[in-house]
């Protein structure tokens, strides 16, 4: 049993939004996660690194980030996520919170 590291890129065609400063949100409680969002020129794509004790959900993570990117049109961003058994609903919630905070001010 080791920690699993998933690394992948997500690119949606229509990415038009970006963030201008790095942001950290969340606490790695049980069933929760934290995310670092950092701006990075990736030609509209998003790079994702997830560190999680749970194995076998890479496809689901990809679909979640795609859903999030499609919903927010966010690109040129680097996600670094520490997960501790967060459910998909919690993951989306935290990402949305981070996005709101990053684009608010």
């Amino acid at each position: 049993m080791a920690l699993n590291t998933l690394e992948f890129y997500v690119k949606i065609g229509a990415a038009t939004k970006s963030i201008d400063k790095p942001l950290h949100l969340g606490v790695v409680g049980s069933g929760d996660m934290e995310v670092l969002m950092e701006p990075k020129d990736l030609k509209g794509a998003a790079s994702v690194k997830v560190v999680t004790p749970v194995a076998g959900f890479e496809e689901l993570w990809k679909r979640l980030i795609e859903t999030f990117a499609t919903e927010t049109l966010l690109g040129d961003v680097q996600f670094k996520i520490n997960d501790n058994n967060a459910t998909p609903a919690v993951v989306l919630l935290r990402l949305r919170q981070a996005f709101t905070e990053a684009t608010e001010e």
Binding site: M1, A2, L3, V28, L36, V51, P53, N82, D83
Partner: peptide
């Protein structure tokens, strides 16, 4: 990103 190296070895969730 100073997380615990011990937790990583044990396969436990880490925090930044």
């Amino acid at each position: 990103r100073f997380h615990s190296p011990h937790l990583e070895t044990l396969g436990e969730a880490v925090e930044f």
